[in-house]
């Protein structure tokens, strides 16, 4: 049996985890989830990123969703925000691209030119 202090600490930790998901992280992966993105397979891509983050055991990376970016023909699209760097946008991201971008860009900070859409713009 845990004492009340331990329980409070656990609760605070979980609260922080939940808060972090919408707050500040070193890396934020944003998947476009408009009708266009969903139709192009964005859900599979988001799931792949969530799995990749889980497997990497990194706690400073978060995956979230946004609406349509306005370039529907090039969905699924994702933005990667690395702390203190300009955001990078990728286009036509499938499962394979997601793995590549995660390993190269998210973990090693190297931009994957093959799927690059734009740098520095939202």
């Amino acid at each position: 049996m845990k004492n009340i202090e331990e329980l409070k600490m656990m609760r605070e930790k979980v609260r922080q985890d939940l808060r972090l998901r919408s707050g500040q992280h070193r890396v934020r992966i944003v998947v476009g989830m408009g009708s266009c993105g969903i139709a192009a397979g964005a859900r599979e891509v988001m799931n792949e990123f969530v799995t990749l983050v889980e497997n990497s055991k990194k706690e400073d990376i978060v995956v979230t969703a946004s609406g349509c970016f306005g370039f529907c023909a090039q969905e699924p699209m994702i933005h990667i925000y690395v702390e203190d760097q300009r955001p990078v946008t990728y286009r036509n991201v499938d499962i394979e691209a997601a793995r590549l971008i995660f390993n190269e860009h998210v973990l090693n900070n190297k931009i994957v030119e093959q799927y690059l859409f734009s740098k520095g713009k939202k």
Binding site: S22, V31, R43, M46
Partner: peptide, 13 residues
Amino acid sequence: ARTFSDIFFAWPE
């Protein structure tokens, strides 16, 4: 079922 787990992850709030 996947739809609902995806929603929880996409918009946790």
